[in-house]
Nucleic acid binder design. Structure first.
Lengths: 283, 283
DNA sequence: TCGTCTTACGAGAAGCGTAAGAATT
DNA sequence: AATTCTTACGCTTCTCGTAAGACGA
């Protein structure tokens, strides 16, 4: 179960070809063939069907494990190397699109004022990608948002053990098209909306709603981008409903169940220095 | 970052000696020395101080990552091999001491009656150990108990991705010595007891109480065993308080916050067979 | 017959053990 | 001086690439 073998196995399984995997990894087809053979003989099981190249049942199981494992390995390496990195005067902050809300943007400005020489690069990406980048050191600090019950943490990602700190919470509103029959209400219960059509977005994943409020919530449209204005436009055009933090969109307050939009700070164990200070200033 | 190197690193760091680690692992001291040197040169950092042998800061960080990583590797291997294991007519169930309560014992009996030829071995151990055994295949199925808010899952362990299913919940009581001033109350709030002295046990870890109900809960005595009767005796003798499921001990019902004793079923993806059927019968 | 995976074989590298050397207590 | 880690060196094993072979489409 050498990580190298695991990596080539993953590549072969995903590309469905020994040869393209080989050239992507800088090996010969032969080497890849031998590596897969080594893995299979180590486990005593075939992992791939050939022609076409497809994971066997055992291979599928291994595939589920291999990627998180490789990610954790990289995270471990990054974490160790971080201890030696000199306190940098520049750092990268990865954030989900809704994480850097007005309040946090303000806090960030104050924190930067306290460390004027600190160069910050901000990058927006999806939640999983934020976690991954922080874990493997591509970003120093992460901000991730999500929907949760008040004071509950967001669901953890198992990429690597990261320190997470709740930064702020704010009310949620149901974003509705202006001519929607419920648009005039003072407040809405989620239960009133289980049969409405919902937008599946990275900002408000319907899966999460189901987890928090039970089944239902049929998906009308799946939007995989991460642009808030686009989502607002889709809602206004009547493609479906979504939940947004009150500061972002006009909408009807969500009265029950009590759910909040929560932003969390993510980072690995930071050595003393500007990054640690920034993290402290944000929380 | 070869797992072999990681394993010897962990062993050296834990034993504090190259030589004893070597003989524990079946290597020469020389080999161990070379392995550590290889790891250090790969990362470009010293990981251990010598004489005495002690992790450096970077080494400590690596140590944090290495053990979960190795565990996941073993779990991955076990999971793959499980797909090939023929449906066995004997399996091992690992359970925490309070998990196999009357209701579940009953369900287990019914499930066994449905599969009379199935041989079951039951083993009791601590929660982390249950998870570990299920992950690496030393146990087929696990039962773990803990304290949680109603319908909330227990905190996950990141050894490996395991399927967890809530099996049952029951009320909690505060176990008090009979002559305790609060013993006559019809119900107790946890807030009334933040300043009482608590037993720290594996059955009711005080850390968990603090997480669920805020700070406080000073620890009077730490009991590392897992025997329920011993804990009851300690409570009766006035060493401290603890929470127990209502079916186990007499005590004052916990009225607020509403917390329950929850039992969860743990297993990896089970191939069709007696084990999968048992898991289904239990839930 | 072409594309693709497997096998055979040789060259190079890596890993371990023996044994001698250095450093600390 | 004794213990413990490091280094030198040779041997074995592993791994990769080249090249030829097998198997399907």
């Amino acid at each position: 179960m050498d990580p190298h073998l695991l990596r080539t196995f993953v590549t072969v399984a995903r590309t469905g070809s020994f040869s393209t995997a080989a050239q992507r990894l800088g090996y010969t087809q032969s080497a890849v063939s031998q590596q897969i053979a080594a893995l299979e003989s180590d486990l005593g099981l075939p992992l791939l069907h050939r022609r076409p190249v497809t994971p066997t049942e055992a291979g599928a199981r291994l595939l589920d494990h291999a990627e998180p494992l490789l990610l954790r390995l990289r995270a471990a390496r990054a974490d160790v190397l971080r201890t030696a990195a000199m306190p940098a005067h520049r750092l990268t902050l990865a954030a989900t699109p809704l994480a850097l809300n007005p309040r946090l943007a303000h806090r960030l400005a104050r924190a930067r004022a306290a460390q004027p020489r600190l160069q910050i690069t901000i990058r927006t990406c999806a939640r999983d990608e934020v976690m991954r980048q922080v874990a493997v050191g591509e970003a120093t600090i992460g901000l991730a948002d999500g929907i949760a019950a008040p004071n509950d943490p967001l669901p953890p990602h198992d990429a690597a053990p990261l320190t997470t700190t709740g930064l702020c919470q704010e009310d949620l509103v149901v974003a509705l098209p202006p001519d929607h029959p419920l648009a005039g209400r003072p407040g809405l219960r989620l239960a009133d909306l289980v049969d409405a059509r919902w937008l599946q977005t990275t900002l408000c994943p319907v899966r999460r709603l189901r987890h928090l409020a039970g089944d239902g919530f049929p998906v009308a449209l799946d939007y995989t981008g991460d642009d808030v204005h686009t989502v607002l436009n889709l809602v206004a055009a009547g493609h479906g409903l979504t939940l947004l933090p009150a500061s972002v969109g006009r909408g009807v307050p969500l009265s029950h169940p009590r759910l909040v939009h929560r932003v969390e700070l993510l980072h690995a164990t930071l050595p003393d220095g500007p990054a640690a200070r920034l993290a402290a200033d944000l929380s």
